[in-house]
Write a protein that binds this DNA or RNA. Structure first.
Lengths: 230, 230
DNA sequence: CAAAAACCATGACTTATGTCACTTTTTTCG
DNA sequence: CGAAAAAAGTGACATAAGTCATGGTTTTTG
């Protein structure tokens, strides 16, 4: 499954929509496409950056590990998203691991190609700056949630986030398969605690389960619980 | 105390060092300087952005409040730092309050002036992008700490961060005065819990107190405790 | 297909941390 | 200065959430 970068979903999102077809081809002249199987890593924490990836299809979890081995999911990367440009631009080793949560495709853009491109293209830098600022405000929001809210409230928040990010499948469930341990890593809690809360949310009819997937039945109540509205 | 923007400490840091004197004066043609007393707000969460501030002297805490009124300190802004450009560029209302933790001075740059400037100056956008990417990786690190570490570990981390950020006074203490409640907001815990931990750190001789201030006596042990090294 | 591995679930127990109530110390300010 | 207000500190107690142990499912794979 080879596709040109001009058709890459990347263009539909973020700063790349500013570029015309020829520019995209320039940027991607050295591109390499790659298949990544579920569970495989695209990046590992601590690596030096040799380029960035843009996700073509499939979703990735971006995680950070503590010294004691505990994992936290910081965010997801979806088709059209870039991975790795932050570390590259900040001149730091990669601070997050990227792991495919389903079979995926991504294309690679070498560091020097991207950097040259950015240097010659002011509006593009500005657009990417805007996107990064937006992400920063999301990161701050998450930060405050972790510091201020209970595990229960954060789970409510996570459900709403997942629904917004992954839309619905044919049966009205959130279109993503996460393990219990991954949901726990996302909420920032222990797997057992998460499982207990899932049972409680189901009893309280905030969510319904369909096999391994979840359907949000009471988004408003979840939002109230998460203190997002009154 | 009026100073020209060309001398503003802002220039020594971040992207502004790229600009020559004339450019700085252009950018600051509409500047307004302001005194802010300890405890006063420069921004309040939810406001729309009309411009950004650069801090000239004094330090600000940038906080976020939960629905239940609890406050979290997300970061500090020091002389040379900008406040408000993230929200401006992301086209969002301000997501953090900025409160002076000591008497301070800041100068204001209206939104349109900054935006025009960015649009006409690609290298500057790129440089600001680099700075923002760096901040993002710091935010992610903080996020993982909150999710993975105990209050004790986070306090150790906070001490090391404060020492790096605020340097030392004549007596070797960290050169900043924070209330207990503010330290708690920084660690993400209750004031009482923080106070107990301070006593414990002192007993364990990790820190020493001199009046209201702290001296780090065992930075290495703190780093081990915080799981930053082995 | 069967065995192994991975994952999900639940109960019992421990513990870190938050909450409340109160005293002591420090700071503010008329 | 001295009263009032704010901040620091301490103890007792409540509880959210982590840990450990175990058993039941589902998924993988040789």
């Amino acid at each position: 499954m080879e596709s040109t970068c001009a058709n890459c979903p990347t263009r539909q999102k973020t700063a790349f929509r500013l570029l015309d077809g020829a520019q995209v081809e320039t940027l991607c002249a050295f591109k390499r496409h790659g298949h990544i199987k579920k569970g495989e890593e695209l990046f590992t924490e601590g690596q030096n950056v040799r380029g960035i990836y843009c996700v073509q299809d499939g979703h990735f979890k971006l995680t950070r590990h503590s010294a004691s081995g505990r994992e936290t999911i910081v965010r997801f990367a979806s088709p059209g998203d870039f991975i790795g440009y932050r570390a590259l631009l900040a001149n730091e080793p990669i601070s997050l691991s990227a792991v495919a949560i389903q079979d995926a495709h991504a294309c690679f853009v070498p560091a020097d190609v991207l950097l040259n491109f950015l240097e010659g293209n002011g509006p593009f830098s500005l657009e990417l700056l805007r996107a990064t600022c937006h992400e920063l405000s999301e990161a701050n929001q998450l930060l405050a949630s972790l510091a201020q809210k209970t595990v229960k409230q954060r789970l409510a928040e996570v459900f709403l986030m997942l629904r917004a990010k992954f839309s619905e499948d044919a049966e009205g469930c959130i279109d993503i398969d996460l393990k219990r341990s991954e949901m726990a890593d996302l909420v920032g809690t222990a797997t057992e605690s998460l499982i207990r809360l899932l049972a409680q949310f189901e009893r309280d009819q905030l969510i319904a389960r369909r096999g391994k997937r979840f359907r949000i039945t009471e988004p408003k109540k979840l939002a109230v619980l998460a203190e997002l509205v009154d």
